[in-house]
């Protein structure tokens, strides 16, 4: 697995990314109404490790999050899960999809 130590920093550029407090307890996964298989525990670990390729493989997963905050509301560590997911979307939109609006 290729690791980029600056990846977490790049993710944080758009909007703050904070997952260090995650206890890996699984409450978020258990409560997810859409049954997302790896969000957010594993995904956030990939970010902290700098495993960019692993994160990019999960693009569909990142965009299928409802941002409903059910997980965040019940997170015992107070991780800002939905803002973290949004941070990944901001990065994907800017760097992977080049979604800067087209003028004209």
């Amino acid at each position: 697995m290729k690791v980029d130590p600056s990846f977490a920093e790049r993710v944080s550029k758009g909007t703050p990314f904070n997952a260090e407090a995650c206890l890996n307890c699984g409450q978020c996964t258990a409560l997810c109404p859409i049954g997302i298989h790896l969000l957010p525990r594993k995904l956030f670990r990939y970010v902290l490790l700098g495993a960019e390729e692993k994160v990019l493989e999960e693009t569909d997963t990142i965009y299928s999050c409802l941002l409903c905050k059910m997980c965040e509301e019940n997170c015992p560590a107070g991780v800002h899960i939905t803002e973290n997911v949004r941070a990944l979307r901001v990065l994907l939109a800017r760097e992977e999809m080049q979604l800067a609006p087209v003028e004209g």
Binding site: Y63, C68, M70
Partner: peptide, 26 residues
């Protein structure tokens, strides 16, 4: 209330099928 479950609406454009499944569950 605070424990409400999502209607699936936020993903209706990108994942219309999944969105409908979440709505049906709700």
């Amino acid at each position: 209330a605070k424990a409400t479950q999502c209607c699936g609406g936020p993903i209706e454009m990108l994942f219309p099928g999944k969105s409908r499944e979440v709505a049906a569950q709700r």
